[in-house]
Simulated assay, not measured.
Amino acid sequence: MQFLTDDLSSSDVIQLLTEHMTDMHTTSPPESSHTLDLSGLKHPSVRFWVCRSGDKDNTLLGCVALKYLKEGHGEIKSMRTASSQRGRGVGRYMLEQLMAFAQSAGYSEISLETGTQPFFYPAHQLYRNFGFQDCPPFADYQPDPHSRFMHFSF
């Protein structure tokens, strides 16, 4: 697997993000869906990566973004494993790479918002396995029964 920065211009990346946004809007009420669209992911405060197979097909396996919130604090956004690749360790690999980048870039804390519905249970477990713990809303988020907030400190 390869973890690469990406400019969000290729059709397979756009298709994966469209699938991601559709699932998020289908799974969570509109007021509780905090996904970034393409313009949001292209904002200068956001760094975006893809995970590709690294073979001759260079298949897109997943994507993830890190949004700068303030000095030393970032937020994981748009973490998505392609449906056909789930259960193969892609999410774990991307999270390992993102966390290594964050630590080397001087971040001292990483937060995230995810849903509370059963669809999100595998993500909850992945984040817990990395040491993320539940926390109160951060940044501009408000308490929401459909949102779960998690935090990790280096």
Rank of each mutant, 00 (worst) to 15 (best):
Q117I: 08
S84A: 11
D134Q: 14
S83Q: 13
Q125F: 14
F48I: 07
K67I: 03
D55I: 12
P118Y: 09
A100R: 15
L4D: 08
N58K: 12
F120H: 06
D37T: 13
Y127M: 06
D12Q: 10
G62Y: 07
F152I: 15
A139E: 02
D144Q: 08
P44A: 09
E109L: 09
T18P: 03
H73F: 07
A65D: 01
Q15C: 11
T116G: 03
W49G: 01
A139C: 04
F149D: 01
E31N: 07
Q117L: 08
T27R: 11
H151L: 03
Q97L: 11
L98D: 06
T116S: 04
G87H: 09
M150K: 04
P145D: 06
T27P: 00
F3S: 01
G87Q: 01
S78W: 05
M1Y: 12
D55M: 07
Q2E: 14
I110T: 09
T59N: 06
L126E: 00
D144I: 13
Y93A: 08
G89E: 10
Y68W: 10
F152R: 11
T5Q: 13
S78G: 00
S104M: 12
G106I: 12
T18G: 03
Q133E: 12
P30I: 15
K42L: 04
P145A: 11
L61K: 08
R92M: 06
D134P: 06
E113R: 00
F154P: 02
R47M: 12
D7G: 07
I14G: 00
P122S: 07
S33Y: 10
F132P: 07
L17K: 02
K42M: 08
E75M: 03
T5R: 14
P136W: 05
Q117A: 09
D140Y: 07
N129M: 14
K42V: 01
Y127H: 09
R92L: 00
S28G: 00
I110A: 03
I76E: 02
E109F: 04
R52Q: 05
E71S: 09
V46T: 05
R92I: 08
A100I: 13
R88T: 13
V50I: 15
D6N: 14
A82T: 06
G91I: 05
C51T: 13
L98H: 12
F119G: 01
S9I: 12
M21T: 14
F132N: 08
M1C: 05
E113M: 02
S39N: 15
G62R: 03
A105G: 00
R86S: 02
E75S: 04
D6C: 07
G40E: 11
V13E: 01
H34Y: 15
Q117Y: 14
Q85F: 12
L17P: 00
P137H: 05
E31Q: 11
D23Y: 12
P143K: 04
F154R: 15
Y121A: 10
R47D: 08
S104T: 15
H20E: 04
H124Q: 05
P29M: 08
M94E: 05
E19Y: 03
C135Y: 05
L17N: 10
Q142R: 13
S84I: 10
R92H: 14
H20C: 04
T27G: 02
M79K: 09
P145W: 13
F101M: 14
D57V: 09
